[in-house]
């Protein structure tokens, strides 16, 4: 819930937070961090924190877009294909005609928004369930991209893009210096904008309402078409931004490697407590869901566990987490019935 049920006192707010999904998630992450920090001193270093943020920025930015779609009561799994297309279009044009940071992001985000609008049109105008639309458009966008480009990788990127950015540089100790790179910057902006959209705007409120009860929202006079359009275009915009972040990190445009990763993003968002039924989900939860996956995978590597085993642990955590959540929800409901 956003601040619609804002408690009068900090104490009540804390009490409510203690019962929330996010609290348990945070507790698990803190326990995990403490254990990993004790086992390997490398874990709780600035270096590791910056590395984690950098390598999980792509999934994180996509997760924010998906969060908004899920809250609105829809689903989108075509975003990996959208990102692949956006990446290719923006960097091919940048290579051919030149570009700067602003125009490059404008092109990628614009491509993403256009493809998001296609999804929204199919969902709204043809009344096709969003899961069908996005399964179909994933194949359409991806199939056409590889058909047109032949699936060729692009390794020569503009120099300024390959170099990236390094802002607010500061030194920590004698040998290491840190700064905000492109990945962390875009991830931060993504979180800020999504939080503002969902919690501080009228539109965000309407998105929650529409996801909670679409019929009621429509009868109250919400423009559900415009709202859905905005939601899917926002997902597209996030996919566009994420695609450049990924290209900069990988130092190449790889049209075939992103598709297939959509379920990783779904996992992060639903671990964060967003419901597939719509109307439920928070930016904080999504951050924590992402953090849990990141800390787990990173921690296993630092503990010396072969990365071959990491999906096993991720699967276990997902299964246990969703089971415990479902079980505790049922207990609470049962208690309410008894009371």
């Amino acid at each position: 819930m956003p601040d619609s049920l804002k408690a009068p006192s900090v104490k009540a707010a804390l009490a409510r937070f203690r019962r929330s999904h996010e609290f348990w998630l945070l507790a698990v992450i803190l326990v995990l961090c403490a254990g990993l920090g004790a086992a390997n001193p490398q874990f709780l270093t600035m270096q590791n924190l910056f590395d984690l943020l950098t390598s999980y920025a792509f999934v994180g930015i996509l997760a924010l877009g998906l969060l908004v779609v899920l809250i609105a009561g829809g689903i989108d799994i075509s975003f990996t294909a959208t990102a692949s297309v956006a990446q290719y279009v923006a960097l091919v044009i940048a290579n051919a005609y030149g570009a700067n940071w602003f125009s490059l992001f404008a092109m990628a985000i614009g491509t993403g928004v256009a493809l998001g609008a296609v999804n929204a049109l199919f969902v709204q105008k043809l009344r096709i369930p969003s899961i069908i639309v996005s399964v179909a458009t994933l194949n359409i966008f991806y199939g056409l991209l590889i058909f047109v480009t032949g699936g060729k990788y692009i390794y020569s990127l503009p120099d300024w893009f390959a170099t990236g950015i390094f802002w607010f540089e500061f030194d920590w100790g004698p040998t290491s210096s840190y700064g905000v790179n492109l990945q962390i910057l875009i991830l931060g902006i993504g979180f800020l904008v999504t939080w503002l959209l969902l919690n501080r705007t009228n539109i965000g409120r309407q998105v929650y309402a529409m996801g909670g009860n679409p019929d009621a929202a429509q009868r109250l006079g919400f423009h559900t078409f415009r709202l859905n359009m905005l939601v899917y275009c926002y997902m597209g915009a996030m996919a566009g931004a994420a695609s450049l972040v990924q290209a900069q990190l990988a130092q190449s445009v790889a049209p075939t490697v992103l598709v297939g990763k959509e379920l990783d993003v779904v996992a992060a968002v639903v671990l964060g407590g967003a419901s597939l039924a719509g109307g439920v989900g928070t930016v904080l939860g999504t951050f924590l869901g992402l953090a849990l996956l990141a800390v787990l995978q990173n921690g296993l590597i630092l503990l010396g566990v072969s990365s071959y085993w990491s999906p096993l642990f991720v699967g276990l955590v997902i299964l246990i987490s969703v089971s415990v959540t479902a079980w505790s929800q049922r207990e609470r409901r049962a208690r309410r019935v008894r009371a």
Binding site: V270, A277, P311, G315, L316, V322
Partner: peptide, 30 residues
Amino acid sequence: VIAYLGVSPILATLGTMTLCKGIAIGLTRG
């Protein structure tokens, strides 16, 4: 997990999918 714990099927099977893949990759090293 789906019927008796009441987890939504998409989440439960997402979990078992990752788990099974993990066991398969872990044992065969790919």
